[in-house]
């Protein structure tokens, strides 16, 4: 089977590209669409740094053959900062020193986005479970958990002040 044209909705925009058989969603985002926030870590689904949202739910994009999600809605870290302004999760990561080397950050933020969309008031336990598939090899888990809880607080406050 030759390469084929695959169409995805990426961060709200329809994108088309040519994909070789078996190309992963991760490789397509990075190499065909130039969206390099999601990283290739283990390529086994164990590290979480390739996490993107597929129809709003986090998935390890290295485990997704891109043909199988044709037409679906993909959200990456590039689509998080509306109008170039950091959102609550991103600004909380900055303010809480939740990034060290930064390699896990894109995946961490995407699972946090999905968590807060589904559960605006997560417990610490909920946050720990949500990021349990994401490895931070700087071992900076504590500040990451604090940042996600802080982001939840900021988002709730914003909703109230609106």
């Amino acid at each position: 089977m030759p390469s084929q044209i695959v169409s995805l909705i990426v961060n709200g925009e329809q994108r088309e590209f040519i994909a070789a058989p078996g190309a992963t969603l991760l490789a397509s985002l990075r190499e065909s669409l130039g969206l390099t926030a999601a990283k290739r870590g283990c390529a086994q689904g164990a590290c979480g740094t390739c996490t993107v949202l597929v129809d709003g739910r986090p998935e390890a994009s290295c485990l997704v053959a891109v043909e199988t999600v044709a037409g679906r809605s993909i959200r990456t870290l590039e689509g998080v900062a509306a109008g170039g302004e950091l959102d609550e999760v991103q600004s909380a990561f900055v303010d809480c020193f939740a990034t060290q080397c930064g390699f896990c950050t894109a995946g961490m933020i995407m699972v946090a986005e999905a968590l807060l969309d589904a559960n605006p008031e997560p417990s610490e336990e909920d946050v720990i479970e949500a990021i349990s598939g994401n490895v931070c090899r700087c071992t900076g888990y504590r500040p990451i958990v604090i940042a996600v809880l802080e982001a939840a607080r900021r988002r709730r406050e914003q909703v109230v002040s609106r």
């Binding site: 992963t24 086994q44 290295c62 053959a65 199988t68």
Partner: peptide
């Protein structure tokens, strides 16, 4: 879901050339 098959594909260890999703 690809969680077992794709790691083998990614490492080149899958003993097949075709996948049926």
């Amino acid at each position: 879901g690809g969680t077992v098959v794709m790691p083998l594909v990614n490492s080149g260890a899958a003993p097949v050339t075709e996948l049926v999703s």
